[in-house]
């Protein structure tokens, strides 16, 4: 049995590509499972999807905790999520990134096989809007299975009803681009010994929880929701700011920065999730959403904040 974990952000098509993958492997005569795992349901938030495939019927419904393969659809996740959790050194890590294998290896500390594919660039080249299918093409090549023709057939089955013929053709081209971008490999299912401390590492025992699930205030500042932004960030025209601090009141993620004198000074883009509530709250129209290049997003800057 091969188990795959896909890491993406809401809106990047992790769930869709897992279903496409399942459809392709079913075509190839395998038994398949594809299932998503939802966290905060918002575009840009980290999400996972999973695949299982095998030669005989798959009956287990347990979570995938020690995958053979981990696929990362957004390089900023490397700084935000423990993407190699449970991944055996005999497994494969495939990352959509412009970075080199050694750079990724240094970031995640994974000893096993790493494959990098510049998925965003290839997607744009193929006329596609998402890198997910490019990465699927690269994965098929890196694993040696399924054949690219089968993967394209999977795309037709999974997406044919949803996409126009032109969009489907773009998807197929994107798959081919990914398939052509990496060198061929083979998948060897790894021995699966779930880590004893696996998914509960660092979590509190029930006896140690505060009464009524009460948590200390101010935790928004500890969660780096900046990675949730999907191409837009708030920008202020300070000349128009009257320091009413309504943006500070409404911001759900403590991303509005104030000086020691309680004067609005700007935004903390490591925390700002790009929800635009501050734009609505601002009575003077001082704040507007502006397009941002991915380079401004946290996690894409070299190591750390």
């Amino acid at each position: 049995m091969i188990e795959i974990r896909w890491h993406g952000r809401g809106g990047q098509g992790a769930k869709t590509v897992s279903q496409l993958w399942a459809a392709a492997l079913l075509e190839a005569g395998k038994w398949v499972q594809a299932f998503p795992e939802y966290g905060p349901e918002r575009s840009g938030a980290p999400v996972q999807a999973y695949n299982r495939s095998d030669d005989s019927a798959i009956r287990r419904r347990a979570a995938v905790t020690s995958p053979d393969v981990v696929v990362v659809l957004d390089p900023s996740l490397l700084a935000e999520v423990d993407v190699t959790a449970g991944l055996d050194p005999g497994g494969l890590l495939l990352v959509n990134t412009e970075e080199s294998v050694s750079a990724v290896r240094e970031r995640v500390g994974f000893e096993g096989r790493i494959v990098c594919v510049p998925g965003d660039r290839l997607a744009i080249g193929a006329g596609a809007t998402k890198a997910n299918v490019v990465v699927a093409g690269a994965l098929a090549k890196a694993l040696g299975d399924p054949p690219v023709a089968t993967l394209k057939e999977g795309a037709r089955i999974a997406l044919g009803g949803k996409l126009s013929p032109a969009a489907l053709a773009t998807t197929v081209a994107a798959i081919e681009a990914g398939y052509g971008a990496v060198s061929a490999g083979r998948c060897v299912p790894v021995s699966r010994t779930p880590r004893a401390d696996g998914p509960t590492r660092g979590l509190k025992r029930y006896r140690d929880l505060a009464v009524g699930a009460v948590v200390a205030a101010g935790t928004a500042g500890r969660t780096r929701t900046g990675g949730w932004r999907t191409g837009q960030r708030p920008d202020v025209e300070l000349r128009r700011c009257i320091n009413c601090l309504l943006c500070w009141v409404y911001c759900p993620d403590s991303a509005v920065e104030l000086s020691d004198e309680v004067v609005f000074v700007g935004f903390d883009y490591d925390l700002c999730k790009g929800c635009a509530l501050c734009v609505e709250a601002c009575p003077t129209g001082a704040i507007a959403m502006v397009a941002e290049s991915p380079a401004l997003r946290p996690g894409l800057a070299p190591q750390g904040k």
């Binding site: 966290g39 905060p40 998914p199 509960t200 979590l203 509190k204 025992r205 029930y206 006896r207 929880l209 009464v211 009524g212 699930a213 009460v214 948590v215 200390a216 205030a217 101010g218 935790t219």
Partner: peptide, 20 residues
């Protein structure tokens, strides 16, 4: 001593909270 009440609990904590 500000606190947050009624937070979202995912599968990693819901069970513990109900047990409590």
């Amino acid at each position: 001593r500000p606190t947050t009440h009624g937070p979202f609990a995912m599968p990693d904590y819901y069970f513990e909270l109900k047990r409590r």
